[in-house]
Design a protein around this nucleic acid. Structure first.
Length: 483
RNA sequence: GGCGCAUUCGUCUAGGGGUUAGGACGCCGGCCUCUCACGCCGGUAACAGGGGUUCGAAUCCCCUAUGCGCUACCA
C-alpha cells in the first residue's frame, strides 16, 4: 500500500470538454496532489472517425486554463495498439477469449428477436462451440472475425471508493468484443491495457462507467494484472435534469470562458459540485482545496449545474482580485467589443485599472465590464429611454446648465469637490440633490444606473463631464425644445 | 425489458438513532444610499411514499415510486 498513487484523466478527443469531464479532471488532480501522487493524462483517440487533433489541443488548453498540470507526457491511446493487441493475443492463447465470425447483421437480427420476447440479449456463444473444421473453413475464406472475451461464471465484486461494495453476477455480463473485425482493439481492452501500462493505482471517473467496471476487473484478472481501485463520481446535469448537451445552454468550458468566468471561480465551483469538505465555507483557493480534499466527501447523487451560483462565485472572485490581475482577463472583452485596441490599452493602462476598480464590485461576469462600462471610453451616443422619461423633465436644461456652470468653476476636480459643489447648488436652488444627480448620471453615462456618479465624474475628468453635460443639453434642445 | 446506482429546501449541500434539520445560491423584505451593485440584517423553503426495527427513525432494514446510467465491432 506504500506505492505511489497514480491517477489519470482520460478524455476522448471527440468534442470540447464539458463540465462533467472537467470536474473529473479536477477531482483526479486534487486527489493526486493531496496524496503526493502523480496525475497523468491519456487521450483516448481510438475512435478514428470522431477523434480530432483540434479537440486534443482544446483539452490541453482547457486544463492549462484551469491551472491543472500533468506529471508525465500525455499518453495517446492510439499509439499503444500494439500493446493492446499483445494482450488480446495472450487472452486468445489462454482460451480466455475466442474468435467470433458472426456478422453485425446477424447479431442485430438475434438481438431484435430476443428483445421481442422480452429477454435481454447475450451473445449465444455459437462461435465458441464451433467445430475445428468449420473454423478452418471460415479462416481459409478470410471471413471477418472479432475477438470476444469469455466471461466465466461467478460473482464480481469490488469496493468502490465512493459507492462502497458493488456486486455483479457475471451472468449479467455479455461476452463483449475486445477486438474489432479490422483488428483494432475496443475501449475496454485498451483502457485496461493502458491503465496497467501507466501503473494507474486509482481510477476515478464518472458514474457512467460504473457498469463497465466489472468487465474491466475481469479483464485485469484474466491478464494476471493487479486490479486498481475504482471510484465513480456522480454525474452533472443541466437545469432540466437532463444530461448536459449542446441543446441546453452553455456546456463546454469554452463557452464559460466566453461569457467571462474566471478560472479560479470555475475550479472552486466545480470542486464543490458533488464534493463537500464538510464545513460551511464555500470559497476556497486551490491550495486549500488540495489540503481539504478527500474521497469521503464525495456525494453519491447526481448534481445539477446551477449557473446562477457559478455567477455569484465568479462575482466574488472578480471583486476580490487586484485590478492588475483582472486587466488581462478584461482586456479581451473590451477589445472584442471594439471599445479599445491593444495600442491604446498600453497607453491608458492606469486609466483602465481605475475603470476596473470602479466596476468590479458590481459585475458578475467579465463580459459585463464591456456591457456596462462603455461610457468610460466614449461619450453616450444615446440615452436610456425610460430613464430619460423619468429624470429629464421640468426645467431640466436649466438644471443641467446650472450644474455645468458650477462644475466649470472647480479648480480641483475630484469626487469630493464635485459632490460638494453639486450639493451647494442644490441648496442654493432649494431642491434636492437627487434632482441634479440622476439627470447628470443620464447625461454622463447614458444610463439611469451606474457606479457612484461622483467617482465616475472624477475618473472621466472635467473636460469630458462638461462636454457630456453640454451634449445632453443640445440633445434636449433638439428633441424636446419645451423642457 | 434486464442489470446497476441514487433519492434532505427550486439548486448545491451539512448532519447520520433524540437537532427549533444547519449553511450557500436563488427569491422576497429591510438597512446603507445619488441609482445599481457590494456589504449588513431578516424571511421563504426540504428529509420521495409505505411498511418494519426501536422508548424514539431524516438517520438502520424491506418494499414501492421516481430519476439517472449501462445494456454498440462509441469511449
Amino acid at each position: 500500500m506504500n506505492q505511489e498513487i497514480r491517477v489519470r484523466f482520460a478524455p476522448s478527443p471527440t468534442g470540447a470538454l464539458h463540465t462533467g469531464g472537467i470536474r473529473t479532471a479536477i477531482f483526479n488532480w486534487l486527489f493526486a496532489r493531496k496524496n503526493k501522487g502523480k496525475f497523468l493524462l491519456r487521450i483516448e483517440d481510438t475512435d478514428k472517425e470522431r477523434s480530432k487533433d483540434e479537440f486534443t489541443q482544446m483539452i490541453f488548453d482547457n486544463l492549462k486554463w484551469l491551472g491543472i498540470d500533468w506529471d508525465e507526457e500525455p499518453v495517446f491511446q492510439s499509439k499503444n495498439i500494439k500493446n493492446h493487441n499483445k494482450n488480446i493475443h495472450k487472452l486468445l492463447k489462454e482460451k480466455k477469449a475466442y474468435y467470433c465470425y458472426c456478422s453485425p447483421e446477424l447479431l442485430a437480427k438475434m438481438r431484435k428477436e430476443t428483445e421481442k420476447r422480452g429477454i435481454p440479449f447475450k451473445y449465444p456463444r455459437t462461435c465458441l462451440q464451433l467445430p475445428e473444421k468449420q473454423k478452418e473453413e471460415f479462416e481459409s475464406k478470410e471471413l471477418p472475425r472479432v475477438v470476444r472475451f469469455l466471461i466465466l461464471e461467478g460473482i464480481t465484486e469490488y469496493d468502490d471508493l465512493i459507492h462502497g461494495k458493488i456486486k455483479v453476477n457475471n451472468s449479467e455480463i455479455d461476452d463483449f468484443i475486445i477486438s474489432r473485425s479490422d483488428n483494432t482493439p475496443t475501449y475496454q481492452i485498451a483502457a485496461v491495457s493502458d491503465d496497467q501500462d501507466m501503473k494507474i493505482t486509482h481510477i476515478i471517473r464518472g458514474d457512467d462507467h460504473l457498469s463497465n467496471t466489472p468487465k474491466q476487473i475481469l479483464l485485469h484478472k484474466a491478464l494476471g494484472f493487479e486490479v486498481p481501485s475504482f471510484g465513480h463520481l456522480p454525474l452533472i446535469f443541466g437545469m432540466n435534469k437532463k444530461k448536459l448537451s449542446k441543446r441546453f445552454g452553455a456546456v463546454s468550458l469554452d463557452e464559460y470562458i466566453d461569457i467571462g468566468i474566471l478560472p479560479e471561480a470555475m475550479f472552486n465551483f466545480l470542486a464543490l459540485l458533488g464534493w463537500s469538505p464538510g464545513n460551511e465555507r464555500e470559497l476556497f483557493n486551490k491550495t486549500e482545496l488540495i489540503e481539504l480534499f478527500s474521497l469521503k466527501g464525495i456525494s453519491k447523487n447526481n448534481a445539477i449545474f446551477d449557473i446562477k451560483k457559478l455567477e455569484w462565485m465568479n462575482g466574488k472572485y472578480i471583486s476580490s482580485k487586484e485590478n492588475y490581475e483582472l486587466l488581462p482577463f478584461v482586456l479581451p472583452f473590451w477589445i472584442k467589443m471594439r471599445i479599445i485596441d491593444e495600442k491604446i490599452a498600453e497607453e491608458k493602462k492606469s486609466y483602465l485599472l481605475e475603470v476596473i476598480e470602479i466596476l468590479k464590485s458590481r459585475v458578475k461576469k467579465l463580459s459585463e465590464f464591456a456591457e456596462y462600462g462603455y461610457y468610460f471610453f466614449e461619450d453616450p451616443s444615446h440615452y436610456d429611454q425610460p430613464a430619460e422619461n423619468k429624470y429629464w423633465k421640468n426645467n431640466i436644461k436649466e438644471r443641467l446648465m446650472d450644474l455645468f456652470n458650477s462644475l466649470e468653476k472647480l479648480k480641483v476636480f475630484n469626487k469630493d469637490t464635485i459632490e460638494k459643489s453639486l450639493r451647494q447648488l442644490a441648496e442654493l436652488k432649494n431642491i434636492s440633490a437627487s434632482k441634479y444627480i440622476h439627470p447628470a448620471r443620464l447625461a454622463i453615462t447614458g444610463f439611469g444606473i451606474s457606479p457612484g456618479i461622483f467617482e465616475v465624474m472624477e475618473l472621466l475628468g472635467k473636460e469630458a463631464v462638461l462636454r457630456r453635460l453640454k451634449n445632453a443639453v443640445q440633445y434636449l434642445d433638439f428633441s424636446s425644445p419645451n423642457l
